[in-house]
Amino acid sequence: MQESNVKTMTFATIVTIVCAVILGATATALKPQQELNAKVFKLKNIVQVFGLTAENDKEVEAYFSEEGGKDGKFVVRVIKDIDGNEVEMNELELKSLDLYKQEKAPAATRRYPYFLMFESAADKAADKPAGIVLPTQDFGLWSVCYGYLSLDTDAETIKGIVYYDQKETPGLGAEIEQEYWKDSFVGKKIVDANGALLAPKASKDAAIAKDSPNHYISVSGATFTMDGIDKGLVNTLKFYEKVIEHYRGGNK
């Protein structure tokens, strides 16, 4: 039996509307929880890139609370220009902040957040951080790679790097999530031999990547991703130059 077109159309329309309503309602209802998860996930990466551990979400959030977590406390600061002038920012504004967009934003609205890690209240009072976590992000091949770079007390030695959100090719660009790649940053310097700031660069030569203090391993076949990482790191050093200079040489 051939059904009439009217019936077919009506049925299709009803099914579409019902499905759309169900999906819309669910998405709206679950959004607050999802956004909270995404935020905690970011914070967790900041904690981990600094080499600290957190068993669960509560411990992660504790690091950013007034009282601090088990090994210290992260304090977020925001500067509004590369001269290092600070500005207050609420959580909502911080959440929607994309570092890679700042260069093209009007000068008055530029914002650069960073995190200082204090091991004790006394250190905080004396402004002697145990290290700094700086955001670093730029376009890879398919997407923006969002990451954090953590610096040691001297604000020169890299403690770790993490890219917590990226959609690069698995097996190529996505290798930036692998331990061996992240480990190639550890202990490297963000200064050159003369002491001027210099962003680490990817090196295809394994020996250079291992021994040179200014290079990390380039993933072969992922040139675009590596270029993006390089560019992001250069920008990070440019944006936070004054902050890094302020804490350099082991202020502690």
């Binding site: 049925f11 299709a12 099914v15 579409t16 499905c19 169900i22 999906l23 669910t26 998405a27 679950l30 929880q33 999802q34 998860n37 995404a38 905690v40 996930f41």
Partner: peptide
């Protein structure tokens, strides 16, 4: 129609996982 029903269900599962098992 089958595909629409299945996709709706899958997106529901995806949203729930994102909210409760991130």
């Amino acid at each position: 129609i089958e595909l629409t029903i299945i996709s709706t269900l899958v997106i529901l599962v995806d949203q729930i996982l994102k909210a409760y098992a991130y």
